[in-house]
Design a protein around this nucleic acid. Structure first.
Length: 185
DNA sequence: CCCTGATTCGC
DNA sequence: GCGAATCAGG
């Protein structure tokens, strides 16, 4: 589906209201991606929303040598809009979640408060006593993720099987990797 | 990993 | 004009 006046209007409004591109895309529905939304926003020159700072300076984009191309077109647009998509869009005002910071990571806050499973406050992975390893017991196939207070007698290493050439088991590998990734270079 | 917007450029 | 792929960042 193309950008009808209605949809463009909705896009404008939602964008101005501070919704993220992906949220707007979801609101527009009909296979609209956040990329499509962002692209449209740019074409409409709607970019800057709330701008506390008066710095009009936009960081110089890295002049890339060549832009990567996507291989072949796989555009399978939804055909005729005979689906029940046009009937229901009576200005989705209150259904929009907006519990988040503007222009930053938006946490999805379900309007009707779904019965989400309550999660324990991030408990450390529990390793069975028999599998816990001391420093000297580590080898190239054991997870070397430290658990507990290094100064305590209870200190031990995860010791779960780790992949070939991997210092941590899958569980801890993800943790370590993510942390590293976030580090600035 | 999740996510955000920004940009480029073939279509 | 469109938007996927990508970049750059949180």
């Amino acid at each position: 589906m193309g950008w009808t006046d209605e949809r463009v209007e909705l896009l404008k409004r939602l964008w101005m209201e501070g919704l993220s591109a992906s949220q707007i895309a979801a609101e527009l529905g009909d296979g609209v991606t956040r990329n499509a939304v962002i692209g449209k926003v740019h074409r409409l020159k709607l970019s800057a929303r709330a701008k506390p700072t008066s710095s009009t300076q936009r960081s110089r984009p890295t002049p890339r040598a060549s832009a990567p191309r996507r291989s072949s077109g796989v555009s399978s647009s939804s055909g005729a809009g005979s689906t029940a998509s046009m009937a229901n869009r009576p200005t989705p005002r209150q259904s929009i979640m907006r519990t988040h910071t503007v222009g930053a990571t938006a946490l999805a806050a379900t309007p009707e408060a779904e019965p989400e499973t309550y999660r324990a406050p991030v408990q450390e992975m529990q390793v069975p006593e028999g599998q816990r390893l001391s420093l000297l017991e580590l080898n190239e196939h054991t997870c070397k993720w430290p658990i507990g207070d290094p100064l305590s007698k209870d200190f031990y290493f995860c010791g779960q099987h780790s992949g070939e050439g991997q210092p941590y088991c899958e569980f801890h590998s993800r943790r370590a990797y993510h942390q590293m990734e976030k580090k600035k270079r």
